[in-house]
Design a protein around this nucleic acid. Structure first.
Lengths: 180, 180
DNA sequence: ACCTGAACACCGTTCAAGT
DNA sequence: ACCTGAACACCGTTCAAGT
């Protein structure tokens, strides 16, 4: 990558982070380019789809949660680890309004730039779930996708102003439903 | 209302129903007017906001669920009635993609055309919840807004293709969490 | 190799002009 | 009283022309 291109890429990412934080995952692409002081074509050259930009913005957080799952498994008993992962997931999406919808549709779209990260997240949760199930601490009739669905639903509530303040409590309610 | 206006109103409602069924709650207003063979200004005259159109489209279904709650209370024990109401709510939103997000923001916006219907829906659920709580069949530490949050979250899952097929089962999981 | 911005095909919403 | 559609201020996305 040429030096000027690298500079544009990095700057777009930085500005993109601000704009998505302000406006959510459906932020105006034009606005990102404008604020970055760059032609709209330059944005599309570096990030050919909105999901490509989101993926670049979120990769770090995604990886942190995925990697954190292994750590949780090492440090806590299977029930506590699963609960902590659920909290991590809700927190991850809390800081990025609207991202959960993008993640959800990425799960069903193998060509999406977000697909791999989402599958990895699901796998990290599925592993904690399996361990809890083996210990008899989680109900046996749900799978990793069910777990992702439930945590996505809670994350969505977190994006809805009238419900956001209740999500911590509702997470406990749902967790107890999973925990047998 | 003048006869020609009445005709336009009814026709817009009919076409609006089709378009929202096809494209969801964020359907193109322009498209509704276009397909109804009417100027865009005429659509805005009859339905000054998108929510006004949605409200007119959904009022009937809303009232049916609200009224149905009283019937459920009369016909079933408190636990079964609450569960049936949860199913009614998910079914209501299932037939109208994206409507749940509109309902959710309407709860927090008293000036929204959808506000009254949503408050009535919440109240109908809250009543069934209170009855079940009095019978010791539902946990005492949740309220009507929590119930609406949980059912909204499930309804949102119903709009997400990768999760939609699991919602019936996940409803049971969540219901068991509520039911003590 | 990369950047630019005009161009295209759309939006939601308003409002002056018409009947 | 009601209808119309041009007008305004936006989008996302593409691509020919430039450096």
């Amino acid at each position: 990558m040429r030096a000027d291109a690298r500079k544009n890429y990095d700057h777009l990412l930085e500005i993109g982070r601000d704009v998505v934080a302000e406006q959510g995952a459906d932020a105006s692409m034009r606005d990102v380019a404008r604020r970055a002081g760059v032609g709209i074509g330059t944005l599309y050259r570096h990030f050919p789809t909105r999901e490509a930009l989101l993926e670049a913005l979120l990769r770090g957080s995604f990886d942190r949660v995925t990697a954190g799952a292994a750590e949780l498994a090492a440090r806590h008993d299977s029930g506590a680890a699963l609960l902590a992962w659920l909290r991590d997931m809700v927190a991850l999406t809390h800081s990025h309004r609207g991202v959960i919808a993008a993640m959800t549709s990425a799960i069903a779209a193998p060509e999406s730039a977000l697909h791999a990260s989402c599958v990895a997240l699901r796998a990290s949760g599925a592993q904690l779930l399996a361990r809890a199930q083996a210990d008899g601490k989680a109900r046996a009739d749900i799978d990793g996708t069910d777990l992702l669905a439930l945590v996505s639903a809670l994350a969505w509530l977190n994006d809805q102003p009238p419900f956001a303040e209740r999500v911590d409590r509702l997470l406990d309610v749902v967790a107890r439903a999973i925990m047998v």
